[in-house]
Nucleic acid binder design. Structure first.
Lengths: 192, 192
DNA sequence: CTCCAATAGGACAGATGTGTCTTAATAGGC
DNA sequence: GCCTATTAAGACACATCTGTCCTATTGGAG
């Protein structure tokens, strides 16, 4: 009832706490990406931590899931920025961004499972500005199909990422081969 | 313990039983498509039926989910056949098929939730022959991009269907508008 | 080495879901 | 209109998950 992680108002978290917290979050992303309704016990085991420890860092399941969403959101923005979205033509930037997202897909499995009714903060129906901005730029410089709205293309990129992810997991092709297929398909569907 | 639905070996199901069974299956598809871990009570309520009745038709949750998968499989084959997949060029047939699937998306929401480890019968990693056959024909007649394997394109079609579905639910565009966007994007990404 | 922060491990009560069963009511076919 | 098939309603035991709490143990920083 006191706050989020620590027991004093505005307390500073120790390096040990940070490390444990991050370990739990990563395990939670891993486990819940595969099975939306995995139990807290399973998450704790995956993190190599006692169940009571998980509950000490995250009061209840809702808090854990909110923290996960926040965590993945931050990673997303970070990865998006690393793709230099303002550089080159719109479609080139989008391809660079898509490549970067593809190479970090483990992180985003959680979004594919999250049902959009979880977040207490109103980030649920939030627009995807990372992709949207690049697409708009492509619309303006004429490298991205103007008949396809930015919001539609956002969904298209994510759905093809999802498809690529499951295709990798299926195992018939290497990650590199799938990336090539993915980028090939994506470029064709979005280019003007 | 006696069989699937009836209490005597090879017993014939009455019209009443058929109707009730179908009602439950449809409700289950509807409810579980939205929430993979909905309770049996919720399913029964959605079907307008007592929980005990559900359990009489489907011994346990596993049996119900297996029956759902079988049901959706059959619908899929039926819808696929209705699209006349052997008519015209490969890409035209694929577009016709995609249109037909788009117009019956409520049925397939269950597949988007099913985790692939459910089916006792080995239909889990089964190939999608309905789409695959059309794609192969398109590969041969040169109307579908030969650089993209049939199995990849199968996943691509389904992921774009999923995307289109959520886009419709989002509500910014009408079903007809989304269908147009969907077909436009799909044709571009798969055509040679 | 010492001391305090952090964890493991487990007990506990409450809630919820599941599958089985029984009984009374209802509906449909003949 | 009767008789049987089918259902509704709910009790029941069992299992699982959850959140809280407590105690002994570990580990790390100074």
């Amino acid at each position: 009832m006191h706050g989020k992680t620590s027991w004093y108002p505005n307390a500073v978290s120790t390096p040990t706490q940070d490390r444990t917290r991050r370990t739990i979050l990563l395990a939670a992303v891993r486990v819940l990406s595969a099975n939306r309704s995995a139990s807290m016990r399973e998450i704790a085991e995956a993190a190599g931590v006692a169940r009571s420890t998980v509950h000490r860092y995250f009061a209840d399941r809702t808090a854990l899931e909110a923290a996960m969403t926040e965590f993945v959101d931050e990673e997303y923005v970070r990865i998006g920025a690393a793709a230099r979205p303002e550089e080159g033509t719109g479609i080139d930037a989008l391809e660079r961004l898509a490549t970067e997202l593809f190479d970090h897909l483990e992180i985003f499995g959680w979004w594919f499972q999250a049902s959009d009714e979880d977040d207490d903060d109103a980030a649920a129906d939030e627009d995807d500005y990372v992709i949207t901005r690049v697409v708009r730029r492509g619309h303006e410089d004429g490298t991205i199909d103007r008949e396809l709205p930015a919001s539609w293309l956002t969904g298209l990129v994510w759905s093809q990422l999802y498809s690529a992810n499951t295709y990798v997991l299926e195992g018939s092709f290497t990650r590199g081969e799938v990336r090539k297929l993915f980028l090939h398909s994506l470029r064709k569907s979005v280019s003007a």
